[in-house]
Structure formats: structure tokens, C-alpha cells
Amino acid sequence: MKQPPYHISIPQNLMDLLSLYRKNPASLLMAGGTHLLNHTLNREGEHYSILSLTQLEELQKISRTDRYAEAGCCVTINRMIETAYIFRSPLLQDTLCQMGPYPIRNSATVGGNLCIPGRRKDLFPVLQLLDTRVEIRYVKPKRNKRMSMKSRWIHINNLLSHDGEINLAEGEMITRVRIPYYDGNFTFHRKVNIKDDFYLSVNCLATIEKGVLSDIRLIFTNEEKLIIRNRDIEANLLGRRFPLGKKDHDQLMGNLSHFYMPNENPYETYLIRNLFRQLLESLADPPENLQGTW
């Protein structure tokens, strides 16, 4: 009898899931499966062990405090959109609403979007700007050989290795994200196609007071592991009054090439410059772009 191409386990609690994952760390974790079904489970001749997360209610919870909101890794994109009043971030809301059509957003999850191999999708740069922390859980045997669940929180910056891959040890998984509230009044989100289904995005959070930029967080990403948040760019913008004069505008555009390493793809370099120009124009138009209290 021919062996099926995959074996699916459906744990009923987190301890069972992590115990199975420790025994077989090569298993694929599946919640919504939007990327997994389209890009991973299509290689003929390979056998897959799949751990389904669909029955774990603990990973589908949303909560908040006065300082931050939390979402389990299996919270869907549409559910985050529907509970936008909890996350209180116009930038996050704009990003979520542009993450594909409704049926995809209804299945795609927070954890899945963060952990796609070799890709840094829409959520990652935005959560970086918001200084998000992620909870990582795993099980470890005690002296009596019984399993004990462990957890740790890390900043999302530390989730990536030097080569841009997700930096998790065998048997570890992301279970929650903790998103602090940001009190700025300006957001900017642009996403354009580079090739196939790869996109270049520019995201910005800022505070503008009486036309003066008092705080800014800016990040570029091209989904192919490249994420650039250059503090020199931010420092160069900080304290400037908008709208800019022509001299200051030309200086900032000229300095961009020093802060952003030109890519081998000239089209991508052109897009970066064009999107940065759009950002400067948006900062110069606060009545339309300033965000009120969420």
C-alpha cells in the first residue's frame, strides 16, 4: 500500500503539541496553511509530518493592558482587523487590510506570517517598528523524565539570525506576540510589487508637533530577508520642519544612497528612492496624514 505523502497530528493542548514537536522537530506546524499548502506541500516524493494547531484555543486569544496588546500565534489576520480597537495602531491596521483578499486573511495567522522560511512578510517590519516582543515556548525533561513547559520573551529583532532566518532552536515555537502602544500621530505604509509575488514595502511611524518631526521610526523590506532600519536615516530626519525647502529635500534624497545600500536590482533602488520621496511629501502634508487618538 502506498504511503500517504503526509501524516497529520492534531494535539488537544499545548503540552502535547510541544512534546510531539520536541520528538520530531522536522514536523511542519500548520494553522491557517495559506503559505504551507501553496508553496511547501507540493514537492513530489517527500513525506511530511504535520502538527495541526487548530484545536489550541490558548493560541487564539487576544488580550490587552494599559501598555500593550497581546495576540496568540493562531489569531487570524481578519480577527486582528476586527479587533483593531484593542491594538490601537493605524499602521498595523493599514498593513493587515492589504494582506491579500478576505478569504486568505480569514485563514492566515500572525505566527504563520512571521515564520515563512526565507521570507519576511508584511507583519514583520511593522511589528519591529512597534517594538514587539514574542513569546517562545518549548518543553524540557525534568529529572524524573517528565516534560516541563518553559517560556521566554525576546524582542522581535532577536528573532532573526545573522543570515535573516528565523532563529529558533529545535522544538521551539512562537506562541504570542506582545505589541506596545505607540502614541505618535503619523503613519506611512506603502507596498509595491518587485517581481512575481515579492513586494517592497516602506513603513514609518512618527510624531509631528507644529510641523517639526520630534520622533520617527522608518523601515524598508523587500521580503527576501532584507530588512533595513537605519538609525542614521532617522537621525537625519529628526528635528526637521515640514514642508521641507528644496535644498533640504534634495540633500535628504542625495543622502539616501549613503544610508541604504544600493541593490543589484536597479528597479528596486528606483522604488526605494520613489517611496522615500513619497514619505517626505506625506510628512509635508500633516492635515491629511495626521492620525487622531485610536
Rank of each mutant, 00 (worst) to 15 (best):
147 M>Y: 09
163 D>M: 05
159 L>Q: 02
157 N>S: 07
139 V>G: 09
163 D>Q: 07
139 V>A: 06
146 R>A: 10
147 M>S: 14
149 M>L: 09
158 N>H: 06
137 R>A: 13
142 K>G: 14
139 V>F: 07
154 I>Y: 03
163 D>I: 08
161 S>H: 02
165 E>K: 12
159 L>T: 00
156 I>Y: 03
167 N>K: 15
151 S>I: 08
143 R>N: 10
145 K>E: 14
153 W>E: 00
154 I>D: 02
137 R>Q: 15
137 R>N: 13
167 N>C: 14
149 M>V: 02
144 N>S: 12
169 A>Y: 15
158 N>V: 14
147 M>Q: 15
159 L>W: 00
153 W>D: 03
155 H>S: 02
151 S>Y: 03
166 I>D: 05
149 M>K: 11
136 I>Q: 05
152 R>A: 00
140 K>H: 10
142 K>P: 06
170 E>G: 15
139 V>W: 12
155 H>G: 01
155 H>N: 08
161 S>I: 01
152 R>W: 01
156 I>G: 02
143 R>E: 10
168 L>I: 05
158 N>W: 12
168 L>G: 08
154 I>A: 00
168 L>V: 05
160 L>C: 11
136 I>C: 01
150 K>W: 07
144 N>W: 13
155 H>L: 02
160 L>R: 03
168 L>E: 14
162 H>A: 11
141 P>W: 13
146 R>P: 05
155 H>C: 06
154 I>W: 02
170 E>Q: 10
141 P>R: 08
158 N>I: 07
137 R>G: 08
167 N>P: 09
165 E>P: 06
145 K>I: 14
139 V>P: 04
167 N>L: 15
152 R>V: 04
162 H>G: 06
145 K>M: 05
166 I>L: 14
161 S>R: 07
163 D>N: 12
159 L>G: 02
155 H>K: 01
148 S>L: 08
161 S>G: 07
166 I>R: 04
156 I>M: 10
148 S>H: 14
160 L>S: 15
136 I>T: 04
136 I>M: 12
138 Y>P: 01
145 K>W: 12
138 Y>G: 06
170 E>K: 12
152 R>S: 03
141 P>K: 14
167 N>F: 12
170 E>R: 13
153 W>A: 03
160 L>W: 00
157 N>W: 01
170 E>S: 14
147 M>E: 13
166 I>P: 03
143 R>F: 10
157 N>K: 09
155 H>V: 02
138 Y>F: 08
141 P>S: 13
164 G>Y: 02
153 W>T: 03
147 M>T: 06
149 M>Y: 07
144 N>C: 08
136 I>P: 01
161 S>F: 01
137 R>E: 07
155 H>D: 04
135 E>W: 01
165 E>M: 11
152 R>F: 04
140 K>D: 13
170 E>Y: 15
160 L>H: 02
134 V>R: 01
169 A>C: 15
135 E>Q: 04
